[in-house]
Design a protein around this nucleic acid. Structure first.
Length: 263
DNA sequence: AATCGGCCCAACCGCAGAAAT
DNA sequence: TATTTCTGCGGTTGGGCCGAT
């Protein structure tokens, strides 16, 4: 059964909160708490949905929220945690008392991301540096993509681990991916200084059920057993991963038109 | 002074997992 | 166990602000 939209009832207000609405919400929560967000607006006399009230409280009205600019220490912490956790804003926010996930997310997108890109462009000059830079980006992305894949695909129990090594002219990424009842190992090598994800990735795939050494090249999907969908997913996964990793560090690398959707 | 465009951030949307029934 | 409801999360949007022209 399809889920009812949060603000299905007509007449519920949306958009910016007025000071009066804030006062009512704060006053109600101070008095009665917020055991049930869905029932709260009705009981408090607010023409808002519960979700809107919860968001307003957690992101703005909570008494323990720290307002104002981020300190240098907070900035460093966010960068470090984002490197380890990826876009898991709530986990990052949990390490920064008084800051909300929304606030950190906004700060990342408006300040830190640009700052890091600027820094990486100025320091990433040699090919070795380039590969190290890619690896630094790939590691958290692998974790994120594995997590995304496992939550968005009903038949994927995906767990992906990765290790990687670089040399002056090659980057090798080894991963294992547990998908349904099969256990796959991937080894992906790039040997290019002008990194072109479409034409220069070659991947070998070895599955735990005895099918070894199948090649994925130039975006042609493997087509030999019941795991076609999975192969397509994983090829797509790598494809997007490398595109993402390369997009800000290889301005000169041509991106095929077919990739436009990923950008 | 008026207009335009980019930036910022509060708020919304949709999804997924947890909890309740 | 299946279904429904609630909550939390991450991505996205829209409108206000501000500097440049």
């Amino acid at each position: 059964m399809a889920r009812r939209p949060c603000c299905e009832n007509m007449g519920l207000k949306k958009g910016p909160w007025t000071p009066e609405e804030d006062r009512i919400l704060v006053s109600y929560i101070q008095q009665f708490g917020h055991a049930n967000w869905r029932a709260l607006p009705k009981q408090a006399g607010l023409q808002r949905c519960g979700k809107s009230c919860r968001l307003r409280w957690t992101n703005y009205l909570r008494p323990d929220i720290k307002r104002g600019n981020f300190s240098k220490e907070e900035e460093d912490t966010i960068i470090k945690l984002h490197h380890n956790l990826g876009n898991r804003w709530s986990s990052i926010a949990a390490q920064l008392p008084g800051r909300t996930d929304n606030e950190i997310k906004n700060f990342w997108h408006t300040h830190l991301k640009k700052k890091l890109i600027k820094q990486s462009n100025s320091t990433c000059s040699s090919s070795t540096d380039h590969h190290h830079e890619l690896l630094a980006r790939l590691h958290p992305m692998m974790i994120n993509n594995a997590r995304t894949s496992s939550s968005s695909t009903s038949n994927a129990t995906a767990v992906l681990t990765a290790t990687a090594t670089t040399s002056a002219n090659a980057m090798v990424v080894h991963t294992t991916h547990h998908h349904q009842h099969h256990y796959y190992k991937y080894s992906t090598t790039t040997t290019s200084t002008a990194f072109d994800p479409k034409f220069q990735i070659s991947s070998s795939l070895n599955s735990g059920n005895g099918n070894n050494g199948q090649m994925i090249e130039n975006n042609n999907y493997i087509d030999d057993d019941e795991d076609d969908v999975m192969n397509e997913d994983m090829n797509d996964f790598w494809y997007k991963l490398f595109v993402k990793a390369g997009e800000t560090t290889t301005a000169a690398a041509p991106v095929p038109p077919a990739l436009a959707d990923f950008g």
